[in-house]
Amino acid sequence: MASKGLDQGALLLKKQLADLQRSSVDGFSAGLVDDNNLFVWEVLIVGPPDTLYEGGFFKAHLNFPKEFPLKPPKMKFISNIWHPNVYADGEVCISILHEPGEDKFGYEKASERWSPVHTVESVVLSVISMLSDPNPESAANIVAAKEVRDSPAEFKRHVRKCVRQSQDNL
């Protein structure tokens, strides 16, 4: 059973990789870190236009569990990025990457949680929309969240510094 699950996950990831290579999606590019491992991806996210992140190129890794697509991948920025919903180590904290509770019976709010119909594309697009629209209510970087609320100029300075850094590291 376990190996069957692994095959299913690998097959699905292979399909998504082929789809993304055939028709690229605006705003990011994606590929494997190691051609022999379908479960670790690298994506390059273009800072969305008309946001503080515009002009930046942010590298991130997606780590898929062997239970994929039943369990969500973990996403971690490799590039330095200043954002209320990204931890200091780069890990992204957004609701669609959270598993639904084991025992919820549908009463807990399930919307926007992980579902097996999510794809690399839908995950990365959600992260891009997170860049445009930070959610300081559920902060992973508390200092950044405070800055968004109390000192936007300081927040902007930090973000622009990351953008410049990301351009230098290209």
């Binding site: 039943l70 084991e102 549908g106 399930a110 949680r113 579902s115």
Partner: peptide, 18 residues
């Protein structure tokens, strides 16, 4: 296997048991 983890429709997230 998904319904054993979460009792919602993966597409519309409608709770199945309700």
């Amino acid at each position: 296997p998904w319904l054993r983890r979460s009792f919602v429709c993966p597409s519309c997230l409608a709770p199945v048991d309700t």
